[in-house]
Design a protein around this nucleic acid. Sequence first.
DNA 1: CTTGCCTCTGACGTCAACGTCAGGTCCTAG
DNA 2: CTAGGACCTGACGTTGACGTCAGAGGCAAG
Lengths: 120, 120
Amino acid sequence: MLRIGEVAARSGVSVRALRYYEEQGLLAAPRSPSGQRRYPEDAVDRVHFIQLLYAAGLTSKDVLELLPCVHTGTATPAMMARLLEQRDRIDGQIAELTRARERLDEVIRVGREHVVADAS
Amino acid sequence: MLRIGEVAARSGVSVRALRYYEEQGLLAAPRSPSGQRRYPEDAVDRVHFIQLLYAAGLTSKDVLELLPCVHTGTATPAMMARLLEQRDRIDGQIAELTRARERLDEVIRVGREHVVADAS
DNA sequence: CTTGCCTCTGACGTCAACGTCAGGTCCTAG
DNA sequence: CTAGGACCTGACGTTGACGTCAGAGGCAAG
């Protein structure tokens, strides 16, 4: 059983973030007799997964809706719909990022041919 | 010369957003004698570009630093560095999104085999 | 026993990109 | 010339994922 600081260090997020995750219902935190949080070992992996979904643009509410399905391996039709919806949204986001990347590349190519001195 | 509402309608952003862009120095807005904003036709394209960069995770400050280079076609070494930095950041973001997408796909595949009834 | 670090619970602060509201001006169709 | 939509400038409100601070308790070492 890990203490909160240990989980934070291993997963690369802040202690505050872990308490926030618990508050949002994303990460259960069993307590020691004195009331301190004691996390199972796999909490670190769960945190990584949560972070991945955050980075993909999901909100805490979105994550909360998908987590049961993720951890149990079963899904209701409504959950499946949400999963597909999120996947499509991510696909769209990747497409948008790709377009932005191409535009930036274009600017970079043109810029290389017209480099001027710094304005200091 | 377009009025602000017209630009908003054509570019798909709000009037408030356009005023915000001006406030941030991202989009110049010449004024009519009575003080109303009159935009040149290409303002719509500029707004689209700004939106694209926002969607790619850049802040107003980031956009402000890159815009001169974009519109003049010339870049200082410092600007080139920022351009490359942003491009790399976007690449990283695409990679992260791709990982998230793969994980979600995995969940979807497993979920398909274990669909249960709705709870309620 | 005490020092010092970790942890606890509130609860207010932050930051970005706007939303929204108030009170006043502009302008164009009828 | 007037009604009503579009526009103006402040200025406060919003949202999400935490940061940060205050005050108090827990815990292993010496």
